[in-house]
Design a binder for these strands. Structure first.
Length: 750
DNA sequence: TTCGGCACTTAGAACCCGGAGG
DNA sequence: CCTCCGGGTTCTAAGTGCCGAA
């Protein structure tokens, strides 16, 4: 079996995948021969399972053995079951759409160009540059097994290093000042330096702390709240919470029972005792004037004059410069989310039992600051104190607090363009590339394990097969009643799959239908190997619909096993590996060197799309989709008319030239010819755009591009086909993937 | 062996803003 | 010039996975 794994096609083939409504049009031109390939792969997988008769008897016996062996083991997962049944009885609501509201001042537009080079590394000697990755000897080793690279990359500066460094730097600033603006070399190439080992994340860290949400501004007195038709003045505390609800009035959320119930309960906690006594029924509350007021406010914001807008922008820029950066190990790095989440109503996704609860305002005394001892600590706002200031350089966060809905910890961390995030990202892809080297072995192994006489091993092997073939997530257990009921591979329940010995001409079809992360539906019908099918039947025997399919398995067992198969291997590595390898393969198949740039980019997007489908990255079709599609079609029609006009003109000018035979008319013919060509090109571009958009209706490419596709594959593709990398990655993405853009050559192989 | 805590990645939707086109 | 649209950006929820204590 070759390393390739054409899952994307499994799903494309299987048709109605994306929330039922996604109909693939036959736009994947490679469809047919792909299908063959896939079949071949399946065949070769079957390999030694030719002896069908004996196989069956054998299996039946085996089944007995398996059951006996396992029968006495207790099902540790059962305790969840009862609760779930209860929950089901209680909540009969339909699916919940996620909604969102943000009544707070708009965040600044962030710039990430370094403003000065003071923190740039002075050490950029090319001689120390790390060897390119395309040679197989280079391994980005996880820290545990890290060995010194014979290339001797730069040492990360120890503390003593700091002073001499600064001198060099200052000098550099002086002579480099003018060139800085458009000198990419001035950007710090952290990927040419040595990484920390032993879990140390930084030596020096200084920052200004978080930006708090603006304090609550009470409503002007003319904006009234009514209860049971009568005006009622609310206390500031109760009023603030009321405004959170008022701002969401347009959303479906506010019609949901759970949301309303949770909101009202938490709202009442903020009321004075008089208010509490009076306000007993949410239905009698009229937030209309508040809602009007906020709408007017946002209108007013939009229609502000240029100067006012500029002023706001400048202020935002100032805050960004002050709070949006930190100094980590002598480099000025962008912080991702330096603003504390404002208070509001919790918007869980899907059928979240806690939707509508009050998300508390975070105060300085809730905040833990992390920075280095020898840094200038951030100041809490006047008259307040931090909860704690600590100096833990084994973690990457700068600020943390505990959120009140789930009791989980929230963090302020660095931007994806930072060294600390970039290194990790790079490492992730290197792990996936190591998997590539041993994936055949692992696949053979789990196929063997389908025959194991131990139930837990069979379950593990079948689950792993799904994770590999279908790119399912691991599926950790979740606390009942705390979150929406969603599952991943290990937590899939019997009710989530259906088995068809035969379906639409295919044998051994499994139908998956469950809600995954973010309550996004995963629907897929896949033919599986007979052994897998039989195993699934076995796992489902004597179980209730809401029993776990893999009752002898959880993510920690699975990951422990994976760890033994390859250092650093976990379930999610398969997703990364399969996504990246699929992109590489699809690019190879779809790109036509003779195409023009837009056509090549369409190919790229299609390859990207195959991955997004594999990973089930969906989006709600944009509300304006139909309209914008129509607009585009109108444009195309107009362009067509224009083209036929131009063609007609060309013809007549040709005729004209034939008669006149002078230079001038010849020239006219040439011009007309060019015009036709230009219009044809424009038309083609529009048509490509239309195709691309149609195919993308409910598929989100961004997530895979940002998180699953080794950027070096894309960069190499750009280099190979002469596509400017800007056509593939926007500015933010180029910043995040700077390492890949710098190091990948056109022959990079994932 | 399980559990909860913690740190960090991955995710879709809301929001914003600038540029194309009228 | 204004409006509309789409891409880019921000937001924060929801996952994964590891660790240490009971």
């Amino acid at each position: 079996m070759s390393g390739d794994h054409a899952h994307a096609e499994d799903q494309i083939e299987c048709g109605s995948r994306v929330n039922d409504s996604y109909k693939h049009k036959d736009k994947y031109k490679e469809k047919d021969h792909k299908h063959k390939k896939e079949k071949e792969r399946e065949k070769s997988k079957h390999g030694n399972s030719d002896h069908k008769d004996s196989d069956k008897k054998h299996r039946d016996k085996e089944k007995e053995r398996v059951k006996h062996k396992d029968g006495s083991a207790d099902k540790y997962k059962d305790k969840h079951k009862e609760k779930r049944k209860d929950e089901k009885m209680k909540s009969l609501d339909g699916k919940v759409k996620k909604e969102k509201e943000n009544g707070f001042a708009s965040p600044p537009h962030m710039k990430s160009e370094p403003e000065d080079d003071f923190y740039h590394s002075p050490r950029q000697e090319k001689t120390l540059k790390r060897e390119r990755d395309n040679d197989d000897d280079f391994d980005f080793k996880p820290k545990k097994i890290k060995t010194e690279n014979d290339k001797k990359p730069k040492k990360r500066k120890p503390d003593e290093d700091v002073k001499p460094n600064k001198k060099t730097k200052t000098k550099k600033v002086a002579d480099g000042k003018k060139r800085i603006k458009n000198e990419p070399e001035e950007k710090w190439k952290w990927w040419e330096e040595e990484r920390y080992t032993d879990g140390v994340k930084w030596r020096f860290l200084e920052h200004k702390g978080p930006v708090f949400a603006p304090p609550y501004e009470p409503l002007p007195s003319h904006v009234k709240f009514y209860y049971d038709g009568k005006v009622m003045k609310l206390s500031p505390e109760a009023e603030e919470v009321a405004t959170f609800f008022a701002k969401m009035l347009d959303h479906e959320y506010t019609t949901k029972d759970i949301f309303r119930k949770n909101f009202f309960k938490d709202w009442r906690k903020e009321m004075t005792s008089e208010e509490k006594a009076k306000l007993t029924d949410l239905k009698k509350c009229n937030f209309g004037e508040m809602a009007e007021y906020f709408k007017a406010q946002s209108e007013a914001r939009k229609s502000k004059t240029k100067e006012e807008k500029l002023k706001i922008k400048e202020e935002n820029e100032r805050i960004l410069q002050q709070y949006g950066f930190c100094i980590m190990d002598n480099h000025r790095e962008r912080i991702a989310n330096f603003r504390i989440e404002p208070p509001g109503l919790f918007r869980g996704r899907g059928d979240h039992p806690k939707m509508g609860m009050l998300k508390r305002r975070i105060r300085p005394q809730d905040i833990i600051i992390n920075c280095s001892k020898d840094s200038k600590y951030p100041e809490p706002p006047p008259g307040t104190k931090w909860k704690e200031v600590r100096h833990d350089n084994k973690v990457t966060w700068l600020v943390s607090w505990t959120e009140n809905i789930q009791g989980s910890i929230k963090y302020i961390m660095l931007n994806p363009s930072s060294r600390i995030k970039g290194e990790k990202d790079w490492q992730k892809y290197e792990t996936a590339r190591r998997l590539k080297k041993c994936v055949d072995r692992i696949r053979n192994q789990y196929r063997e394990d389908w025959k194991s006489k131990e139930m837990r091993i069979r379950q593990r092997a079948v689950a792993l097969y799904f994770i590999d073939k279908l790119a399912l997530r691991a599926g950790n257990e979740k606390e009942e009643g705390e979150t929406a009921d969603t599952v991943g591979c290990c937590s899939v329940r019997v009710e989530h799959i259906k088995l068809y010995p035969e379906n639409e001409g295919q044998e051994f079809v499994v139908e998956f239908d469950f809600l995954g992360k973010d309550s996004i539906r995963y629907y897929n019908k896949v033919p599986v190997e007979k052994r897998v099918f039989k195993n699934l039947q076995l796992f489902m025997e004597n179980k209730e619909p809401d029993d776990d399919l893999f009752d002898r398995l959880n993510t920690s067992i699975l990951n422990k096993h994976l760890q033994e198969l390859m250092d650093g291997l976990t379930a999610k590595v398969f997703r990364t590996y399969n996504a990246s390898i699929t992109l590489q393969q699809q690019l190879k198949e779809l790109t036509n060197g003779d195409d023009n740039i837009p056509a090549k980019i369409l190919s790229y997007n299609r390859a990207n799309r195959a991955v997004a489908i594999l990973c089930n990255h969906q989006r709600a079709p944009p509300k304006t989709f139909e309209k914008s599609m129509q607009n585009l079609q109108t444009k195309i029609d107009a362009k067509r008319d224009q083209l036929s006009d131009a063609k007609r003109e060309l013809k007549s000018s040709k005729a004209d030239a034939k008669v006149r035979r002078d230079e001038k008319s010849k020239k006219t013919v040439e011009t007309k010819k060019k015009a036709v060509q230009r219009i044809e090109e424009q038309l083609m571009k529009l048509e490509v755009q239309a195709t691309d958009r149609e195919e993308n209706k409910q598929i989100a490419l961004g997530t895979s591009k940002l998180n699953y596709l080794d950027p070096r594959i894309s960069v190499a593709w750009c280099k190979k086909f002469g596509i400017p990398v800007e056509k593939i990655y926007n500015k933010t993405q180029r910043e995040k993937f700077a390492w890949a853009i710098d190091m990948a050559e056109k022959d990079f192989e994932f």
